[in-house]
Each structure stands twice: as C-alpha cells, then as structure tokens.
Design a binder for these strands. Structure first.
Lengths: 333, 333
DNA sequence: GTGAAAGCGCTAACAG
DNA sequence: CTGTTAGCGCTTTCAC
C-alpha cells in the first residue's frame, strides 16, 4: 500500500535522489527525466510519507493544542481560529483535551513532544516552578492563551483585571451597590492555574475598594461549584440601599443563573442585575440580552498561531501585546 | 536537544537494541542493566521520537478528523467526544477543518494520508464516484459521520428521514396544517453532499404526502441562504385552515428564526410554531424552549472512534447500527 | 544531470 | 542476556 520513492526510482531506472529532485521541484534534473518520474508517480498515486520527511528535514509542520474541552463556546471558537490560521501557514493541528485534569495536561504535552510538534498552544491548568521547569526543558516553543503562566512564555489574552474593574465601575455607575460574585474556580486557588479568574476577581475587588461611593457593600462571593444552589439560599429580593447585581466571572455561569432566576420568577434587571464575561455567541439567542465583556477569541487564535510560528521560524519568543476588550451593554444591568 | 537511544547506548556502553529493550519493557534483559539504562534515560530526560517509532512500527496511533468547522455546537461536541474516546484508546487526534469547501476537504484528507494517520473520521461534503474512488484508493480506514456517503464506508448517524417524518407527524397531530420548510443547503443539491439534509426533507415530504389529513397544504420551501429575509416576505399571520409551523432543518436556523419572530412581535407558538432539529445545547438557555429532535452527538463520537479503531485493528470495516433519536417536546409547537 | 551513501531515531530479526 | 544489522521512507551531501 503506497508506493515509495525507492520503488519509483526502480521503475524509472534512476536513483532515489533523482526522484526526490523531480518530486520536490529541485534543480539539477533534466526536464525529460523529471516528467517521466512525475508521470510514474502520478500513475501510482505516490503520496509522500510525512513522517519520514519530517524525520529527515527536522520539522513536522505540526502544532499541538492543549485545551480543557470544547464545551465552552469560546474554546470551540478558539480552536477553530487556530486551525484556520495554522492551515494558512502550512501547519496541521494536533488537538488534545485535558478536561481540566492537571496530570492529563502533562500527559498531553508529553505526547505532543514525542510527536515532535514544532510548537504548542497551551491553555495551562498547571502552574508553579516545577511545571515551568518541565515546560522549559521541552525545548519546544509554547504560547499560552487565556490563562497566564509566566513571562517565560508569550501570553495571548486581555487585561482581565482591568476589564472586570471596568465592568464593576459600569455597574456602580448604573446604581448597583450590592453584589454577589460567582466564580467556582476560585475554590482551586493555590492548586490549579486560575490566573485569569483571579485577575477578574481582583479587578472586581479593586473597583469596590476604590469606589468613592460609600454605600457599596462587601460582595458575597460564591465559590461553590453548585453555585445555583448557593444562590437559592440567598434572599435576592431583600431590600437595601442600591440595586443588587449577580456578577458572573464568565457567561456560562450567567446563563445558568438567568435560567434559575427565570424559574424563580425573579425579573432581570428589575429585581436583580446580571453581569457576564466573555460574550460567547450563545448570548445572541438569549433574552434578555446579557450585559457582558467582549473580546475577540478569533483574534486570540490567530495571534497565538502567528506568535508560535514566528518563534518556530525565528530565534526568540516574540512579544504579544494584550488584546482589546469592551463592555457590551445588554439588558441585564 | 533531546537525547536519542543511540546516545544512551553509548553512555551506558551497551547497544541500541539493549536500550530499546530497557525502555520498552521487553524481555531478554537483565534487571541490572535495565535499571542502569532507565537511570540514564531519566537523567537526560529521554523522550522517544514518535515519528521514528511509527516509521519502524508501521502505526502512528493517530486518527484524523475532517469536519466543517466548530461553530456549530454539535461539531464541537462531536470533536470533544472523538478526542476523549481516541485518547482512551491510545490515539491522538489530527483536527482538520474544511469550512465546507470541497477542495479543501480533499486537501485535508490528503494531508492526513501523508501523515499516515491510522484512520479518518469524515463528515463528507464531497460525494460521487470520483470522490469515492479517491477515498477508496487511500488504503486508509474511513468512517463517515452525520452525512452518509456510500455503503463502502461505515456511517454513524440516525435515520434522519424517519426522524423528520416523525417530527412532521407530531406537528400535524398538534393541529399544524401549513408549513414553511427552511433548509438553505438544499440549494446545493447535486453539487455538495447534503445527504442528511435531503433525508430530512424527504422525510418531511413523505409525511405530508402520506397524511390522511386533507387540509394539509403544500409546504413553502426556503432554500435561500438569507432565509430570514425570505421569511420576512411571507405573511405569517395570514388566516387559513390549521396552524402554521416554520420547520427548520436544524436548530441553528430555528434560533435565528426565533430571534426574527421576536423582533417582529410574532408570538411563538401562538401565532406560528417553530420546529428545530439537533437539540444543540444552546437551546437550554433559550425561551421559549424549542421543540426539536434529539440525538446523542457524544455517542456519535464514541461510536465513530470505536468503529474506526476496530477497523484499524481488525480486517474489515465493522457495521454500525443507526443511532436512536427522540422528539423533544418543547414549547414552540 | 545523476548516483551513491550516510543519516534522521527507532524497531525487529537474527546471531552469538 | 546482549550485540549486530537491516530496514522504515525521505533528504542531503558529495562524487562523478
């Protein structure tokens, strides 16, 4: 199954080297033999063996991607963008999914290294000096996305702290004074890499602290994975100064929260406001339109690939500026 | 960068063959030298080169996936399931996306073959004898998903014709007599492989024809890519016998339609009913709850991988039974 | 313009 | 138990 260069060489009565010259448009071959070889190759449906080629050439033209999963809309978009951009640059993608399992993440990375990918795009769930050392020892370019690891690797993302700060100010500006902050990942503080989620929380806390509005209350923070249950135990209609907002550290939580509020007959934003983050595309079909923070996942994907490709082809890891974001004024705040 | 078996052999003063025995837990090596070799390998962070291994062993333990894109929720789910199941079986996934481009699909397949994937999971957009011949000549196991190609390749999916037939009967049973059928892909009939979409349409047409209910009218069929615009030109509140339903050949269209109806102030299902297909997970956040046809994409992914793996490891392509489906009774019909 | 040979890193078959 | 050798398929260098 599958004819090889050597076999073509025999069939044509030439050497493998000559076949190589013909097949790869190299110089130093007469047009006549070249055509003859190409003819035979076509007739036998010659397909080059990429493994052998990459072994000889030293490049696989493959990039590895390590993500949680594809359930989150954003990741699907990101993967899509990565594949497209990678393809444009001549790379094929190895997709590996970790399900947020830290050991599995290491396994995935190891597999990619064994397969000698030219570079890796990583949404890290691990962190810490050991992990960094491990990553550094790979001798493989790595670009991090959506979750910062360290300045030893380029990072593609936004300034989440500032963005959530802006969001908080926006809410305060609209009369919100009491807040419930939902962010289950915070429960993994110190264990997993939840940099982005921490940044968002910090940005939120900053804003509340810095607010010159005296009536802003201490926020209630929900770290429970069963955040809807936790929410159920709170009296959301309790009277008090200013309005109440449920701040979700990402849209996925916000959607669940809105479903819950709907079943409880709690009106948004009349009774309580809801703030999201990510602007996932699902939102365009949901009423009321969620107020959220938008950034461009497609751009993330492209930037990550561009950066990785530049690193692969160049010497050092290029710097990537943080991406932009904006608050999407919906109907829930 | 990266130590090789040969180098380890030199360092340990043994032959490459012995190192291979130690590294791969083979028999015929003394515990002592084995430990010594493993020691050195670990110290130098030995990582096997998968390309070389696969070249020598004849298997890549890689499966290729060819899909449109990841925008459709279903595909993201499918990809996720494929990756997970493939990983369980020891395979790594090459993901290629075609954007529904028929030439690009061929390119993707060729790339995967060059990379000597052990098998391919394909959502085909091409069809016809030429394409089938091309595919057959690959000498690579291929399993088709979601879009049937021919009985030469296993197919993972449901009986779409019957499912849409059931859906139509369900609507007729609920008093619907006038139908608008939305299915832009039908415009590519004869060109692209739209098997599934045709099946759904056929099932729908069957049901209307076979209905013993005399008042069922000929459906209006929208094949226009700008189906919302087409819909705008129709008087949806026109009086007539029975109720009117907009039947969408997949949920993605239904969501757009519902958004449109909302902006027009047309109530669902009071003024007009809406039927979907696929039961994408987005639906759980959309009101009113869309009536649709459910099938299990996760199962598709698993079955496809299982089938492919069985074929790779066995002789012939295993048969896969059609998967189940069910109508999800929502609030829009 | 073409051929021969070495090598990429690993495996497997055969000697010893 | 260990070493040797011959590949896997392609590339590349150096002769001719």
């Amino acid at each position: 199954m599958g004819i090889t260069i050597k076999q073509i060489a025999e069939l044509c009565g030439v050497s493998p080297g000559t076949v190589d010259r013909a097949l790869n448009n190299r110089t130093g071959i007469s047009e006549k033999t070249k055509q003859r070889i190409l003819e035979v190759a076509r007739a036998h449906r010659y397909v080059p063996d990429h493994r052998a080629r990459s072994l000889a050439r030293g490049r696989t033209m493959t990039i590895g991607v390590v993500l949680f999963d594809l359930y989150n809309r954003s990741f699907a978009q990101l993967t899509n963008a990565i594949e497209r951009r990678a393809r444009e640059l001549g790379y094929v993608v190895h997709l590996t999914l970790t399900g947020k399992n830290r050991d599995l993440e290491k396994t995935c990375i190891r597999q990619l290294v064994e397969r000698k990918v030219d570079g890796i795009i990583l949404f890290p769930v691990n962190k810490g000096p050991d992990f960094e050392a491990e990553l550094a020892s790979l001798d493989t370019p790595v670009v991090t996305v959506c979750n910062y690891l360290s300045d030893r690797w380029p990072y593609v993302g936004i300034d989440d702290r500032k963005a959530m700060n802006d969001a908080a100010c926006y809410m305060i500006g609209r009369g919100y004074r009491r807040f419930i902050y939902i962010c289950p990942p915070l429960a993994f503080r110190g264990q997993a890499n939840i940099f982005t989620q921490e940044q968002r929380w910090n940005g939120f806390a900053d804003a509340l602290r810095d607010s010159d509005c005296a009536s802003v209350a201490q926020p209630v923070v929900i770290r429970d994975k069963h955040y809807v249950d936790a929410l159920r135990r709170i009296d959301l209609r309790e009277a008090g100064p200013g309005r109440t907002a449920i701040v979700c550290s990402c849209d996925a939580y916000a959607l669940e929260v809105m479903n819950f509020l709907k079943t409880e007959g709690i009106r948004v934003p009349e009774d309580v406001g809801v703030m999201g983050f990510d602007n996932i595309d699902t939102l365009q079909y949901v009423t009321p339109r969620l107020t959220t923070v938008h950034y461009d996942m497609e751009e993330f994907g492209e930037r990550a690939v561009n950066c990785l490709a530049a690193w692969i082809e160049g010497e050092a890891a290029p710097d990537v500026p943080l991406s932009g974001y904006r608050i999407v004024e919906g109907e829930t705040i």
